[in-house]
């Protein structure tokens, strides 16, 4: 019973924390630009405002355009039930493994891209085309990173991977693990639309990927999509933080360990957000046709991760 409560609490926590995480990255970036910046809770205000606004829908759009935000949001929230954010093992651990997580996120991307094409705007089509290209090219890296993790843990189920690394801490420092972490970090940047793949703060339609798809969305639909994007960032951060550095994740499900879990989770988020902010300050956006090079680099890292796991078995 406690497991199910925790499961819901974890999903709720993810939903609540996600906008703050985006705000944190933005605040850190502002500070690195010597700006005062908006506070970290600014995204909550933006979401609240969007939920109180009217929706404007294109006259060309079909039901799919109006359904897509809900599909995107639901599929992303469904993932928060499967990912170990606070504790393992949770009752829904067996409902979906890492592959399910990846394909659920692809489901959201699929519908968002279709929604980008629906109003018939050239920007939407451009965004959809680029988003699907990046998503498709990131896929092999994700699969290989999963392979590397599953190899050392003997399972693709997330709870199992976390538990295994906890019991054998040495594995966290194995070359396979480290290389897979690096590969998945690059994929995180690609999948969540961060620099150098996509600039979340851009105003130029021609350089957009994610933004171009959602140019037509407004009001509550936009809020759902933005929120889902934030949750996706949180999911990837949790995967990076909890699969590779699982310490802090509660295994005993006692109040004390859960407090530790929340604290360590926040610490991991701050570290990862800092890394992203520093990276985004340091590097410029890549030309779209240079992105595949970066992704193939991450692919090679993941391949090395698997091979080294094989050889060091």
């Amino acid at each position: 019973m406690i497991g199910y409560v925790l499961e819901v609490a974890q999903a709720a926590l993810a939903l609540v924390l996600a906008p703050g995480l985006v705000g944190l990255v933005r605040w850190m970036k502002a500070r690195l630009q010597n700006r005062r910046g908006a506070p970290a809770w600014q995204p909550y205000r933006e979401l609240g405002k969007l939920f109180r606004k009217e929706v404007v829908v294109s006259s060309n759009a079909s039901w799919l355009f109006r359904a897509a935000p809900f599909v995107v949001f639901a599929s992303t929230v469904a993932v928060t039930f499967l990912v170990p954010i606070l504790a393992v093992p949770l009752p829904f651990d067996g409902v979906g493994d890492l592959l399910v997580v990846v394909y659920l996120l692809l489901l959201g991307t699929f519908f968002l891209s279709l929604a980008g094409l629906d109003p018939g705007s050239p920007f939407g089509g451009m965004g959809a085309s680029r988003e699907m290209t990046v998503a498709a090219l990131a896929e092999p890296t994700v699969a290989l990173a999963i392979f590397a993790l599953a190899l050392s843990a003997g399972s693709t189920n997330l709870g199992q991977i976390v538990a295994r690394t906890m019991t054998a801490p040495g594995a966290a420092l194995s070359p396979g693990h480290l290389l897979a972490f690096a590969a998945l970090f690059i994929v995180t940047l690609a999948e969540t639309g961060r620099l150098p793949i996509d600039n979340p703060a851009t105003h130029l339609e021609l350089t957009m990927i994610h933004e171009a798809m959602i140019l037509e969305y407004s009001g509550r639909y936009l809020a759902l999509i933005e929120w889902a994007a934030a949750v996706k960032l949180l999911i990837f951060f949790s995967l990076l933080g909890n699969l590779f550095v699982p310490w802090g994740v509660s295994m005993a499900l006692t109040p004390g360990t859960l407090v530790v879990a929340v604290a360590s989770l926040l610490a991991k988020f701050v570290v990862l957000a800092g890394a992203v902010a520093v990276l985004e300050t340091r590097i410029a956006k890549l030309r779209l046709f240079r992105v595949p090079e970066l992704l193939s680099a991450s692919f090679v890292l993941a391949l090395l991760a698997v091979t080294s796991s094989f050889l060091l078995r």
Partner: peptide
């Protein structure tokens, strides 16, 4: 949440 919905031209 606001439930108003208005149909307009595609933004171009």
């Amino acid at each position: 949440a606001d439930r108003r919905l208005r149909v307009a031209d595609t933004w171009g």
